[in-house]
């Protein structure tokens, strides 16, 4: 995919200092057309500040971002017209109606006449805003507000979407609808999504980056990131209690296994065996148990949990 798509978002060593504190420190990444990039990190890691610089709201202390080749420092208007942006918390003009607000956004974006009406109607339909079109925005539910924020970001059909926590505050059905929408529109766009929800990374992101304390600490596809988890390829076993101790001893003695963690639950025993260097070991563990005549109910390999990777990458730095 990296070869076929043009590089629409190119973030180059972006740095923002507030006083002596670097909120964002030398962050570089890129997003190609047709790609959804997940932007992860703990609260206060610098995600929103990075997005504010890419969209031209804050000027970088050093480094830059280029959107479709236009440099945000020297051609802010070109950059802004190519981006659809949903800021953190989806701020809106509470005194307007959704219809007036979308019309205003479309006008400012330079859409005219029939084209404007068509685009406004299109985003209203896409985000299912029909029933609230004539109500004051401040009276709308959180779900409608968030969708209206998205509609505003999409109204000019931008090449690049920067969405700061687009599904925050939505119920599971609404989250699903937004993810479906992103999947539908992503083919000709480059999309950056910040999120706390790691399930979202699996659901919609082609690639993800993790930042912490303003520094990039991890990057890769969801599968690549998962491979960095402590429990990647760990073998999980469920077996009757009386077999537990023996099995733990047998597996623990295998040269391929680094350590075994047993947990008792009711009359069952769960063993997690961590292979050395995260190698795939389910087959040899199963073979060994069978040869020893130890019964087990279930055996599976852990793919690695993204939240573990997230914690590994972001807690290390806090300690250091």
């Amino acid at each position: 995919m990296a070869d076929t798509g043009a590089r629409l978002v190119d973030v180059d060593c972006l740095t923002k200092a507030f006083g002596s504190v670097a909120a964002v420190n030398g962050v570089s990444f890129h997003v190609n057309r047709g790609e959804v990039l997940g932007f992860l990190g703990p609260n206060g890691a610098g995600k929103s500040t990075t997005m504010k610089m890419i969209t031209g709201y804050l000027s970088p202390t050093s480094g830059t971002a280029r959107i479709g080749g236009a440099d945000v420092r020297t051609e802010p208007r070109a950059v802004k017209s190519r981006i659809g942006y949903l800021p953190e918390g989806a701020p809106l003009y509470g005194d307007m109606t959704p219809e007036a607000y979308l019309d205003f956004s479309a006008r400012i974006r330079g859409l005219k006449g029939d084209d404007r009406q068509r685009r406004v109607r299109d985003v209203i339909a896409r985000l299912q805003l029909e029933e609230v079109l004539h109500r004051r925005i401040e009276t709308l539910s959180k779900g409608f507000k968030r969708r209206l924020g998205l509609a505003q970001a999409l109204v000019h059909d931008p090449e690049v979407l920067i969405l700061d926590e687009p599904t925050d505050g939505l119920d599971p059905n609404q989250k699903h609808a937004v993810r479906k929408l992103i999947a539908e529109i992503k083919t000709d766009k480059a999309i950056v999504i910040s999120t706390h929800l790691l399930e979202e990374v699996d659901a919609i992101c082609d690639r993800a980056i993790i930042i912490d304390h303003g520094v990039l600490v991890g990057e890769g596809t969801p599968a690549e990131l998962r491979a960095r988890a402590e429990n990647h390829n760990a073998v999980a076993l469920a077996l009757p209690m009386q077999n537990g101790a023996k099995a733990a001893k047998v597996i623990g003695a295998m040269p391929e296994i680094a350590r075994v963690v047993p947990t008792a639950s009711g009359n069952m025993m769960t063993l997690i065996a961590y292979p050395k260097d995260h190698v795939f070991a389910a087959d040899i563990v199963a073979a060994r148990l069978r040869s020893e005549g130890i019964d087990f109910h279930e055996l599976h390999t852990e793919a690695g949990r993204l939240d573990l990777v997230f914690r590994q990458l972001t807690i290390q730095r806090q300690v250091a």
Partner: peptide, 11 residues
């Protein structure tokens, strides 16, 4: 309200 961020990131 934070709408300044929307306004100033429009062209």
């Amino acid at each position: 309200t934070g709408t300044i961020e929307i306004l100033m990131t429009m062209p």
